[in-house]
Every structure is written in structure tokens, then in C-alpha cells.
Amino acid sequence: MNIDSSAIANFISGISLTVSTVTLYFFIRDRSKQKYAIANEYTKQLLEWHSMTVEVLIKLRSCSAENKEDLLSRLSTQIEKGRFYFPNINKDDGFGLEKPTAYQGYRNLTLDFLVYSYNLFNKKNCQDFHDHAVILQREFTSNIFQILRPKELLNEIKFLTDKFYASNEIFEDFLSKEANAQIFTHHKS
């Protein structure tokens, strides 16, 4: 059997190409996993911060004067923590340059909803602004919703796990089932 040097070179080149391709595949796959892990951790932290903040906002809407100061303090703390998720915006006009670094520029809209809520709840007649507080909270949640894009996240999870972790039904779909409609119609009267 006579093997020439070009056949050996082709064989080695083929093995090198295969090893390089496999290495590239695993590198890209691991990189994707790392990106997903980073995004997942950020999402988790942001949702935790959002949850704690909304809890304070809801309690403030129904609070008594005795625990209002504690809740306002907690809301102020959440605003400060939020600066790390939503840093001020620099519009290159020098606004706020005399302030410490975290406060230079214009406050992010997401935090403005919270600051406005703080100022509203700090008023003596804050109960008169209940509807305003609800609107501010909904806008705050909507900003977080736009950032985290839960529908896209659910689709990505479905792609990765072959399972969709949400129902695509609304209450009318539930009521369209005869047994459910009878129960709820009976209890309406």
C-alpha cells in the first residue's frame, strides 16, 4: 500500500477542519448559554426589584398615617436601588454636572414614575390622588414589561424546553365551556 504525502496532508486537513468545526460549535453554544444566563440573572434581579417596589406602592395607596413614613422610606430606598437599573440620561447639555455621578443628567422615566409617586404619597391629602397613583404604578410596570418582554421570553423558553409556560386563554374562553358558564351565571344572580 502506497500512501503519498498529499493524501496524508488531505487527511490531516480534514481532521483539523472537523476539530475546528466542533470546537466552534461548542464555543458558540457555550457563549449562547452564558448570554442566556446573564440575561436570566438580570431579569430575575429586575423582577425582584420591581416586585418589592410595586408592593410598597400598593401598600401606600391604602396606608394609614402611622406606617406611611416607613413605606415612603422603603420607596425612597427602591428609587435609589433603581438608579443601578435605570441610570440618569446624559443629553450632552451639561445638565446636573454639579451633582454626584449617579445623579448627573436627567432621571430615567421609569424612576420618574416612582419619584412622582413618592411626592404624591408624601402629601397630606394623598388619598385624593388614588387614581393618579394607580396610573403611575401601571406606567412603571409597563416600562419594566417593555424592557423584559415577557412574551418573547416565554417563546424563547418554549424554544429551549419545548414547553410553553403560559396559557393563551382569556376569561371569556373559560366561560365558553358550558359547565363553567353555568356555574358563573348561576352565581351572578
Rank of each mutant, 00 (worst) to 15 (best):
T110Q: 10
N125S: 15
L114C: 02
K123L: 15
T110M: 08
F86P: 01
I147P: 00
K81V: 11
L72V: 10
P100D: 02
Y116Q: 14
I144C: 07
D93C: 03
L60H: 01
S73W: 06
N67C: 01
I58N: 09
F121H: 15
L153W: 01
E156F: 06
F145M: 03
S76H: 11
N90R: 08
L154S: 06
L136A: 05
R61V: 03
A133K: 08
N90F: 09
N125C: 07
D128V: 01
T101S: 10
K124V: 14
Q78A: 15
L114W: 02
L75G: 00
Y85F: 15
A133V: 08
E55V: 08
N90Q: 05
Y116V: 15
V56F: 02
C126R: 04
F86A: 00
H130Y: 14
T101P: 03
R138Q: 14
E69R: 05
L109D: 01
K91C: 02
R149D: 11
L97C: 00
Q127Y: 10
G82L: 13
A102E: 15
K99R: 11
L136P: 11
N155D: 12
S142Y: 06
L111A: 01
Y106E: 10
N119W: 09
E69D: 12
F86Y: 06
K81L: 14
E80R: 12
R83T: 15
N125M: 12
A133R: 07
L97D: 05
